[in-house]
Design a protein around this nucleic acid. Sequence first.
RNA 1: GGCCCGUUCGUCUAGGGGUUAGGACAGCAGAUUUUCAUUCUGUAAACACGAGUUCGAUUCUCGUACGGGCUACCA
Length: 518
Amino acid sequence: MENRKVRVRFAPSPTGPLHMGGVRTALYNYLFAKKNGGDFILRIEDTDTDRFVPGAEQYIIEALKWCGIEPNEGVGFGDGPYAPYRQSERKEKGVYAQYAKQLIDAGHAYYAFDSKEELDEQRKKFDALKKNFSYNAITRLNLKNSLTLSAEEVKNKIDAGETYVVRIKIPADEEIRFQDIVRGWVVVNASQLDDKVLFKSDGMPTYHLANVVDDYLMKITHVIRGEEWLPSAPLHLMLYRYLGWEDVMPHFSHLPLLLRPDGNGKLSKRDGDRLGFPVFPLDWEDPITKEKSSGYREKGYFPEAFINMLALLGWNPGTEQEIFSVEELCKVFSFEHIHKAGAKFDPEKAKWFNEQFLRAKPDAEIANHIRTSVKNHFQFNDDDRRLSDSFLNRAVQLLKPRVQFENEMIEKGNYLFTAPTVFDEQAIAKKWKDGCKEFFESLKETLSSLDEFTASNIEPTFKECAAKNNQKPGDVLFLFRILLSGQGGGVDLMGMAELLGKEEVIARITKGLLVIAK
RNA sequence: GGCCCGUUCGUCUAGGGGUUAGGACAGCAGAUUUUCAUUCUGUAAACACGAGUUCGAUUCUCGUACGGGCUACCA
C-alpha cells in the first residue's frame, strides 16, 4: 500500500460557486500530489439532484484553471483511466448499487422503509423527552426495516414499488479509531454513530457511500478535505472495513477551517458582502436568484498572490519565507506544518500579498496588462503615445510603489494620462505667494530651452530658476506638482515631468496658471 | 443537548520542559523623500484558566472555560 502512486482528489459538489476554503482544499491536494509526483483528480459529487446548480461545475473548473492548480485527471481536465468522474454518471453505470448489495448480503447494511414523515415524528417524540433521535442499533429495532420485517414482507414491499433506503448497520458498541495525518489518533465509539443512509430512495448513493466507493475504485491514496468531514470519517472507515478494503484505505487529513475575520464562525458568503472582500475566486451570479458575488480575479488579484495567501492560511513552510510561487510551494509543502486550529481570514494581508507580487512583476508586463483599460478609460486612439511601451512602462514604474493592484494605477495615476481640470485649492492657498506667477513664467522659458528633458536635468534647472526668482524650492516644488497633477501628492515629481514631456509640462503650467493664479 | 476537534501578540503563525517566546500583516514613533507613497529604523503587543507530573512547564497529563465542526434520504 505504501508503495502506491500518490493519488488525491478534490471532490466538490456543484451546488454553487467554489468558496475560497474549497480552493484551499484543492490547493493542498494539488501541492501534495505535485510534491510526491502523484495525480490530482477532480471528481464532481453531484449525488444531490435537489441542490444541483447549473453552471457551478463550469465555475469550479474555471476557478481551478485561473488559480493554476489544474487536475491532471477528471471532469473538465481530460478523462483518465477511471472515467467517468461525475458521480451521477457513475451511478448510471451502476457503480454503486453492487456495493450496496454486497453490504446487505454481508449483513452490514439493510433496507429501511420509514418515510421522512415517520422519521420526523420519531425526532419530535425524542425532542419532547429531551433526547436525540438517532437511527441506530437500539432504535432500528422499532422501525420499519429489513431487520424487523420478515424477508417476505421486505420482498413484497420492494416488489410493490415501495420506496426504501439502504442504511449501514453500525454495531452497538465498538471502538473505532483511525489516524489522521494532521490530528493524530481519533477515537470514537460506534454507539455515537448512526445508521447513515447509503442509498437514497431516488436511487442515488449518498456522499458517504459514493465517496468511499470512488476513492477505492480510483485508487486514491490520501483524502485531504475540510474539518467538517472529521465526524463522518469513522463511518467511512467502517465502510472500508465492511467492503473489505481496509488494507488500501486512504490516509486521512482533515484541514482546519477558514474562519471569518471578525467575530467567530466559519467564513461564509455573507461575510464577504458585509466586510467588502471576495469569498470566491471568480465573480458569480446565481442563475436562479440572480444574486451576485464578487471574485478575487475580478477584484484585480493575481492568481499567484491569491494562491500564496491561501497556502499560508493554515500551513507554514517552517521558515520565515512568505512569498512563494506555486512551483516553490510544490517543493516545500508537507502535512507536518499544517496548523490544527481554524484560521481567521485577514483581507488586509491578502492585499499585502498582491502588493508583493505586483512589485516583483516587470513593468512591461504590468503595462501590457493595463494597456487596454487605459485606452478605454481615457478613450485614447491606438496610436496615442500614452499607450506606447516607453510611456506606459515608465508610468507603471512611477505608480508601482503606490498601489497594491494593477487596476488602481488608472485612478491613482489619472494625471499622468490626462491634464488636471481641478486643482487642490486649499493646498495652493497655503503656498501661493507674490512672485509665484513670475517664477512659473520664467520656469516655462527655462524649461523650453532644455535640450534633454529628463528628470536629472529638470531638477537642477528648476532649483536654479527658483533661486533666481528668490523662491523657496520647497514651496514652488509643491506648487509645480499641483500645476502638473492638480493634487498635492503623487508620484515622483521630476519623473512625472520627464514622462509628460516638455510640451505637455509647459502646456500644463500655462493652463494651470490661468486657473489658479490670482 | 450529545459527539468530535481546537486554543501562542488584534490577525496569520514559529517554537517547544530551562528562550530576552521569533517572524509577517495591521498599529504607533522616528529617519529619508521639502508633501503623499515607497524605503529604512525603532516600538508596543501573546503562551485562556486551574490542578497534576517535574528541580523547573507556555511546552506533558487531567479538568474547566471559550471557540469551531458535526448531529438530514446535503455534501
